[in-house]
Amino acid sequence: MSTALVAALIGLADDHLILGHRLSEWCGHAPMLEEDLAMPNIALDLIGQARGLYTYAGELEGAGRDEDTLAFGRLERAYRNLLICELPNGDFAQTMLRQFYFATFMHLFWQKVECSTDTTLAAIAAKAVKEAQYHRRHCAEWVIRLGDGTDESAVRMHEAVTLLAPYTGEFFIADPEAGGAVAAGVLPQIQTLQPAWQADVEQVFAAAKLALPQAVYAQKGGRRGLHTEAMGHLLAQLQFMQRSFPDMTW
């Protein structure tokens, strides 16, 4: 099970690293100063969670890979993050809706992992669950205000809903690598989180006066290393320093 758990943890860590990197791209470009601090705050939480997961995965693997090697030293196909995490930021509405979807999912996920039979993971979850809960609240408030805001913000939020619709199904596709860990009670059965996630999204959409997206084909492949066109460009930035000056520290 250990090899499979390592792979599942790296996939989970990749979600947080890649989305955290995306969010950090807003630093200095947010529509208002307050959000220019709020979004990097969330990004730092996500990267902190990624660090814990990478470090633990490296320990379990026992092959001498530390958090930096895992974060910066792999090729594109070795990253196993969900596709929604690597999508370009788009406008503020798109970024907030993506973050709301992800935070809602992760809040449910970490609540389950708090009861994991693996005590290290349970400890990571105990910290992360509070962070995810705040992210969910913050982003939900923005989704409501943009959806039920001005004519322009409503149009943009509606476009974001349509654009992201193909990428939410992948949350609930069981990771083939994680089967053993699920059976051992280390990780939750991902499909069981969907009803609660759906209910939460519906509640926020109702408050935001947003129509739910039509059911569309769910894009998938991230967990197998099959990424969108955007991923290579993201990694070029993310890995630049370590590729140019291997093992550098500061």
């Binding site: 208002m32 307050e34 709020a38 705050n41 408030e141 205000r145």
Partner: peptide, 20 residues
């Protein structure tokens, strides 16, 4: 001080800006 659309957003912005 900070800018925010309403009370709830002001509270969140205060948390994000001043309690880091």
């Amino acid at each position: 001080s900070l800018h925010a659309a309403d009370a709830e957003m002001a509270l969140q912005a205060a948390r994000d800006v001043y309690t880091r």
